[in-house]
Every structure is written in structure tokens, then in C-alpha cells.
């Protein structure tokens, strides 16, 4: 019996071919016990109570609480912020916490960091890794253990390169190079890939948004198949016109987004917003945190940073203040 399995997308099937393929798949559904076809597992409903996704802790109970446990697996979480707000800091921290064993809220897995704009912040990661290692010294007993050994770093410069990398990634995900599989992918940032290459005309925008969906589709497929947590950072653009037009379009829980006193808007428009499952926004405001000035700790920058949930299928509206210290990102109780 000729069979297609539809667990992999078949890119260029004609209309008739598609319908043929679906017929065969339909035949191969449950209940057809006479033949033993290659059956796509999606053709049977999944058992919901068993599906609760694993979550990756952020390494701070206050931040975790605001995200109901952390960054969910099998899902794309976007962090939107202007540069210098701490989104890369959050990402670096996740690269480390993903290595924690599951009872401690981690994924006991290695992580892949795909960077697109700046040189990789190696020194900062080193610093974080050292304090991470010392604060979890009971977990990572071996002294030769280095958290950086479980972080893969890859640079991409165009959207096509990113898609090619994702295609190549399948084999890495299936046969992990280290003992712990890759369970976290961070793309920092997506906006840089799309800023230069595309013009602001109808044709280019169409091409751009179909590329968004292609990349997001591939990422979601991998996230589902391998139980990955995917974190993507995005930049903001200033709102120049008044609230009229597409740039004034409200997406998510906050009516207006402000950062550093300017009204901003997530880059890449509403099409991209449909590609992610959850969107978080980090705002920063220069503000003097009186307590810390008095205590004289220089590590506490006088910047008020907040993590807001703009939308997420599982989270209510919430905001959480946090600060960046030498040891990483920590939430602040208000």
C-alpha cells in the first residue's frame, strides 16, 4: 500500500495530489486495523490531561510567578523591548537555567543561542555562568563542569540563513551532540533580520510576512516534536504618527507601550504578532530607586525595569518589576 506520512510537510504538492494524499491518510486512520500503514500520530486525538507543558524557570521565584512557572515548552515566547532593557540578559539567564534538573524547574537540557545583531556577549555569559555554578554547586557536583559547554552559539545575518539553519537543526535535535538534548532555542533578535532587506511596498511586505510564517511554522513544528521552549526577542519602533494607522493598532493587554518615556510599538507589524504564542514586553524607565541609592550598591542601576504580559494563552494581565545585578536578572517585589 503506497503511503505518505504527513508528519513532514510536503512543499510542492498539486491540488489533486494533496487530495489523494489526504485520502490515503484518511484510510490510515484509527479503526483501520486491516492494514498496518505508517500512521501520522496527529490522526488520533491526544490525551489532554497528560499534555501540560514543561516550563523552564527564569531562575527567580518572583519572575517565575508572574509567568506561571516560566517559559513554556512547545510554544514560542517573544520578548519585546528597546535595546538596553535587559532582554539579552533574560535570554542569557535562560540559557543557564535550562540546564537545571527538572525538579528545580529547568529542562535538564542544553540550549542553542542564535544571535543576529551584536557580537555574542561572551564575557557576560562567563560571569553569569560562574555565579550560576556557585549558586547551584550542590546540583553540579563535578568541579570540571562548565555550564558554557552546554550552550551552542550560532550567528545568522539574513532571514534565509535563519531558515536554512532551522532546516539543518532537525538532525541535531534528533541526535543531540551532548548527553543532554537541546530543549531551548533563543533567537536574539528577529527584528534585525528583517529590517534592512525589505522595502516598504506591498510586494516586499507580502514576501516578508510569508517568510515570518515559514520560520514560525518550522519553529513550532520543531517545538512540538522535540518539546522545545523557543524564545525570540524583538525590537521596538517609535510611534511617530498619532494613534491613527497600523502603528497605533492595539495588540495585547496594554493600550499604549511606553519605554524610556517614548511611546513604542513592537517591530515587524501584526503579521509577526500572529506567529508567536505569547508576547512579553520589557519597559525601562530612568527612575531613582531610593532604597538602593542609600545602601550604595553600585550594581543596582537606577533604572526601573518591568516585565509585562502583553498576551499569552495561559497568562492573565500582569507586570513584574525586575533589576539586573551582577548575578543575573532578579524580580523585585512591589
Amino acid at each position: 500500500m503506497p503511503l505518505f506520512t504527513v508528519s513532514k510537510p510536503i512543499p510542492s504538492l498539486s491540488y489533486t495530489m494533496l487530495n489523494m494524499c489526504t485520502c490515503i491518510v484518511a484510510l490510515a486512520g484509527p479503526g483501520d486495523k486491516s492494514s498496518k500503514p505508517v500512521r501520522s500520530h496527529q490522526m488520533q486525538p491526544q490525551n489532554l490531561p497528560l499534555l501540560s507543558p514543561q516550563k523552564c524557570t527564569l531562575g527567580c521565584p518572583i519572575l517565575d510567578r508572574s509567568l506561571a512557572g516560566g517559559i513554556p515548552c512547545k510554544s514560542i515566547t517573544e520578548i519585546v523591548a528597546e535595546s538596553g532593557s535587559g532582554k539579552t540578559q533574560l535570554c542569557l539567564q535562560l540559557l543557564l537555567t535550562a540546564q537545571l534538573p527538572t525538579p528545580l524547574g529547568g529542562l535538564s537540557a542544553s540550549a542553542l543561542y542564535i544571535h543576529t545583531e551584536f557580537p555574542f556577549p561572551l564575557r557576560r555569559l562567563r560571569q553569569l555562568a560562574n555565579s550560576f555554578k556557585s549558586s547551584y554547586s550542590n546540583v553540579f557536583a563535578s568541579s570540571s563542569f562548565d555550564p558554557c559547554g552546554l550552550i551552542f552559539v550560532h550567528a545568522v545575518h539574513t532571514a534565509d540563513q535563519l531558515f536554512d539553519l532551522l532546516l539543518k537543526l532537525d538532525s541535531v535535535l534528533e541526535n543531540p551532540p551532548t548527553e543532554s538534548p537541546v530543549k531551548l532555542i533563543v533567537i536574539d533578535s528577529i527584528a534585525a533580520l528583517f529590517r534592512s532587506e525589505f522595502e516598504n511596498n506591498s510586494g516586499d511586505l507580502k514576501r516578508r510576512s510569508s517568510l515570518f510564517f515559514k520560520i514560525a511554522g518550522k519553529l513550532k513544528l520543531q517545538a512540538e516534536r522535540f518539546g522545545l521552549a523557543v524564545v525570540i526577542t524583538n525590537q521596538v519602533v517609535d510611534v511617530v504618527t498619532s494613534s491613527e494607522g497600523i502603528n497605533g493598532l492595539r495588540i495585547g493587554n496594554l493600550e499604549n507601550l511606553y519605554s524610556s518615556g517614548r511611546r513604542v510599538y513592537p517591530a515587524l507589524g501584526p503579521s509577526w504578532a500572529h506567529c508567536v504564542n505569547s508576547r512579553l514586553f520589557v519597559s525601562r524607565d530612568e527612575e531613582i530607586l531610593a532604597d538602593h541609592v542609600r545602601s550604595g550598591e553600585y550594581v543596582c542601576r537606577q533604572t526601573r525595569r518591568q516585565l509585562h504580559v502583553l498576551f499569552a494563552p495561559h497568562l492573565p494581565v500582569s507586570s513584574c518589576s525586575f533589576m539586573i545585578t551582577r548575578d543575573g536578572v532578579v524580580g523585585v517585589e512591589r
Binding site: L13, S40, M43, P45, L48
Partner: peptide, 21 residues
């Protein structure tokens, strides 16, 4: 929850196949 038949679909080919099924 038990009586929600949940299907996760990862491509348009799957989507069409599922609707046919």
C-alpha cells in the same frame, strides 16, 4: 477536558488531511 478531542496540526497538509478524516 477528557471530552475535548485535541488534535495538534503542524502543516497545511496535515490540516487538510485531518479535515478529510
Amino acid at each position: 477536558l477528557r471530552d475535548i478531542f485535541y488534535f495538534r496540526v503542524c502543516s497545511y497538509t496535515e490540516q487538510i488531511a485531518l479535515v478529510n478524516y
